[in-house]
Amino acid sequence: MALASFGAASVLLPVVALFVRAPWSRLGGALSGVGASTALRLSIEVSLAATAISVVVGVPLAWVLARGEFPGRNLLRAVVVLPIVLPPVVGGVGLLVALGRSGVVGRWLHDALGLQLTFTTAGAVVATTFVSMPLVVLATEAGLRGLDRRHERAAAAMGGSPWYVFRRVTLPMVAPQLAAGAVLTWARALGEFGATITFAGNLAGRTQTMPLAIYQARQVDPGGAIVLSLILVLVSVSVLVALGGRLTGPR
């Protein structure tokens, strides 16, 4: 009980401090002054796009990790999990070397297709996806591993093709874990900073998400930074509360 109180307090204290120190008197000015709405909208767009891509790409990846039998599967899992372990800046540097205009793949994208990801919103989405996707992959893989395979076998015996079985039995049965993973992915994407600023840069309206705006606001307007931080806290908490109860509560 004491430890739990300590744990809760350690999370609560910085949040409470933000409230205490917020420049309430010039809240409105601080809000408009630091481009809060632009950054918030971009943050939500980027985090939702990253979550969507993570689910679309991550679920097949989780399936391969949970069901595939091939040499190097554990290595693949380690690589997939790597972005969780690495400092996000390292991810950003890696993406720059891979997908930057002069990068290993980026060079080809740029020369052949005229595509440049760096300094674009798409680049911010790529960086954010890179960092946050492992969460949905791991959650879904755990769900798939915990699944009672008899149901899938029964579905196959009932005439379901592998894709039909996946769509109507496997996927709905791992839906709770998938949804929990997607929420974690989204939360991680909303807070993503290091990989985005390193790979995609920092430009208001294009790549400057809330964390980047907060960081830059510190230079010119520390009060504005606190206001932006509070907005991010409020948005995150309200979404997590709204979804969290549904995910972990009685179903």
């Binding site: 076998r153 029964a154 196959a156 015996a157 009932m158 005439g159 379901g160 093709s161 039909y164």
Partner: peptide
């Protein structure tokens, strides 16, 4: 399995 005309 899905093409075998068997009900279980």
């Amino acid at each position: 399995p899905e093409r075998r005309p068997i009900g279980i």
